[in-house]
């Protein structure tokens, strides 16, 4: 899950805004009713949700690349099978999220087109490379961990199809997170080289993972309407803090050191305080200059272009089959 870039405000004026209808809609949302595909909804709500769900789906699909990078090199058959199943789950999440977004009136093909043209975003975390096996542990433990923090509240999202998709996605994500942590435990209990591999991976991933929650609340303009519509239920900073509080003790249990000298436990608030996040890096990576942005998009476009003939064949075959079926009753006469 990867709702990070979702704070981009939809600035398009809502053409046919009807104050009465909007008020009725808001009353339903306030009453915690689920909004379903055929229900009336403000255009801005539809647009915001379409973009959010599509971004979420794109993130699942692009996310298959950095993790898939280790399927053929997983260090044991058990790990290989688990990683293969995990990456397959991400593909499955992508498929149902696209289906959920389609209920809002945009086709999967249109959404894929937007991803390939660069018009749609995916979670920036996947613009970082997976360099060692420990990265697969870290992605499960931290990236999926952060995803779960973001997604659990989405199970109560006002839009029914999205909320229901999230229930299933969250179950699978928590399984992935446990698997990732278990990879980390094996490394932490392993040889000095394995411990070093684990530490080095944490050093690289910790800050980008904190960025997954999006810009600090003071800079996030989108939060207000998303909160009002009950698409979002916690602010970026609230979720980030929850994540840090849950994760730091897990890291210490592994004997790892977080790459943040300012990380301290505040006994008064019972929270872990953390240092300043490098928001310039965040903006740079979102804007396209992360280590792997170009590589990921190139892979996505290549797979689309190289396999166009397969999709054409499937379409042509389906057409032939339909024509044959239609011709049959006539032939029988």
């Amino acid at each position: 899950m990867y709702t990070q870039a979702l704070n981009t405000q939809d600035q398009a004026p809502s053409a046919a805004s009807d104050p009465l209808a909007d008020a009725r809609f808001q009353a339903r949302v306030d009453a915690e009713e689920r909004i379903e595909p055929n229900d009336a909804m403000p255009e801005a709500y539809r647009r915001t949700l379409t973009r959010q769900i599509a971004q979420h789906a794109h993130s699942e699909i692009v996310g298959m690349l950095p993790e898939g990078n280790w399927i053929t090199r997983a260090p044991s058959l058990k790990r290989k099978a688990a990683l293969l199943a995990k990456v397959q789950d991400e593909g499955g999440h992508g498929a149902y999220l696209y289906a959920a977004a389609e209920t809002l009136g945009t086709s999967r093909e249109q959404m894929e087109e937007q991803l390939l043209s660069g018009a749609a975003k995916y979670s920036s975390i996947f613009n970082y490379p997976t360099l060692t096996w420990a990265d697969i542990g870290i992605i499960g433990w931290l990236v999926d961990g952060a995803a779960i923090m973001n997604q659990i509240p989405l199970c109560r999202c006002s839009y029914g199809p999205y909320a229901r998709a999230m229930v299933r996605v969250c179950k699978e994500e928590s399984f992935h997170q446990r698997q990732g942590y278990e990879i980390m435990i094996a490394l932490a209990r392993g040889t000095p080289a394995q411990k070093q591999m684990a530490q080095e991976a944490l050093d690289r991933w910790w800050w980008p993972v904190l960025m997954m929650f999006g810009p600090p609340d003071k800079d996030s303009q989108h939060t207000e309407s998303a909160m009002r519509w009950k698409i979002k239920r916690f602010t970026n900073d609230e979720l980030r803090q929850k994540f840090v509080d849950a994760t730091v003790p897990q890291g210490h249990f592994l004997g790892l050191t977080f790459p943040d000298p300012a990380l301290t436990f505040d006994a008064a608030t019972q929270h872990w305080n953390y240092g300043e996040i490098d928001w310039a890096e965040f903006k740079r990576v979102v804007a396209g200059d992360g280590p792997c942005n170009r590589q990921r998009m190139k892979q996505m476009r290549a797979k689309h272009a190289d396999n166009a003939w397969v999709r054409e064949a499937a379409t042509a075959f389906a057409r032939k089959r339909r024509q044959r079926a239609e011709a049959m009753p006539i032939a029988a006469e």
Binding site: M64, E67, G68, A85, G91, G94, Y98
Partner: peptide, 22 residues
């Protein structure tokens, strides 16, 4: 088959390759 996962013509085939590979 596992080499295909993430690189298939459509998502459904990523899932199918994953299944068969597993």
């Amino acid at each position: 088959l596992s080499e295909w996962v993430g690189h298939s013509p459509v998502i459904e085939e990523d899932l199918a390759f994953g299944n068969m590979g597993l």
